[in-house]
Amino acid sequence: MVSYDFDDIRPYYDSEVKEKMRVLLKDKTFDEVLLHLFKNRPKVQMVKFQLRRVRSVKQLQGVFIYDLLHWLVDKTSRGLQCTGIDKLDKKTPYLFISNHRDIILDAALLNFLIFENGMNTTQIAIGDNLLLYEWIEHTVKLNRSFIIKRSLPPRELMMASKKVSQFIRKSITEDKMSIWIAQREGRTKDGFDKTQDSVLKMLNMSNKGGISDGFNELNIVPVSISYEIEPCGLTKLKELIKVEHYGELKTNKDDLKSMSMGMFAPKGNIRFAFGDPIKTNFALAENNEQRNKYIRSIAEMIDTQIYKNFKLWPSNYVAYDMLMQEHRFKDKYTAEEQKKFEIMVEQAMVNIDYPITDLQERFLKVYANPVINKLKVTEA
């Protein structure tokens, strides 16, 4: 097996925390971020004083990050719920694979819940496209993030993928550290959550045995993340329209705006549902076609759990009935909840200023697709 140097992608070690924190606290842009977050200079100075005393990742997450997330949940949501985590072994390292709705909060809130339940926080996969400034790289690596490099030529991208695959496998099987990774590259923008085969193929790059043995040792646990109000819903819809109709790709600056918006915009209720570990018993793959078939089967197992465990809110049911022009789920929402969502739709039509004939249908699908997906697996 190739021996990799993970220094360019790994999170910071505890021995590096003091020095990296010192560099971070001297960064002028990070100072502006803190001022934006805490609103006044005395509070920022107090926060900086606390951060200077941090000497380990666990201390940083257990004191500062935990309190920050607690404050965000209280300020921007109607509550954070969690199911299924009690079934997990607190000493077993897992590979958590979830649907991806928010750049920052999906992994951050998962770790918040894991920490509350007495488990060691996960290492987080993050794309290098988000490392727009030096302070962001320091911040995420101080919080157990590792880097997935995406903007590379094909040959270099293949080598980088192999390195990430090996890092994930080593973290789980040797270092006994859990990992979080999204089921797809980039956030779901249309409400249709689907595991990409390419993510699983990347994980399989470090597998030296059969498909079943290789994936079983990763202890994959699907996680369903359900936000009552879709994070950056209008922004994501605009991105889709710009790509499909105008050929305009989002920029790194767009990602930065989404990171901030996702944190501070209202989210309604939030629920994380932890599924059961994925276990397979495939025969040895005889060729690439069979191997790809096995990987697609694993992807479907993950999707099935994510769909089944997804929490459907009144907004999802209203959107489905409006989209299908029926009253199938009228017992799932009140007249007030229906009116509230209809106003949201009207506001979206005003704010998304594009001459697209199916604009309302697109917006409704963002909220209705989770219902459609759940029906697929519950009615099968």
Score class of each variant (00 low, 15 high):
M1T: 11
Y4R: 09
Y12G: 00
Y12L: 07
Y13G: 05
L24P: 01
K48I: 15
L51R: 00
V63E: 12
G79P: 05
K87M: 13
K87E: 12
T92W: 04
R101P: 01
L105T: 02
F112D: 01
I124N: 07
N129I: 10
E137K: 11
F146R: 02
K149L: 10
M158T: 11
M159I: 14
A160V: 08
K163T: 08
R169N: 06
R169G: 01
K170F: 05
D193C: 05
L200S: 03
N204D: 15
I211P: 00
D213C: 04
D213M: 10
I220R: 04
I229K: 14
E230C: 12
L240G: 07
H245N: 15
L249E: 14
K250V: 07
T251F: 08
S258G: 14
S260I: 14
G262W: 01
K267S: 08
I270L: 13
G275Q: 06
P277C: 11
T280H: 05
F282G: 06
R296E: 15
I298Q: 05
A299N: 06
I306M: 08
P314A: 10
Y320P: 06
D321K: 06
R328L: 15
F341H: 05
M344I: 13
V345I: 13
T357D: 15
Q360M: 14
P370Y: 09
A380I: 09
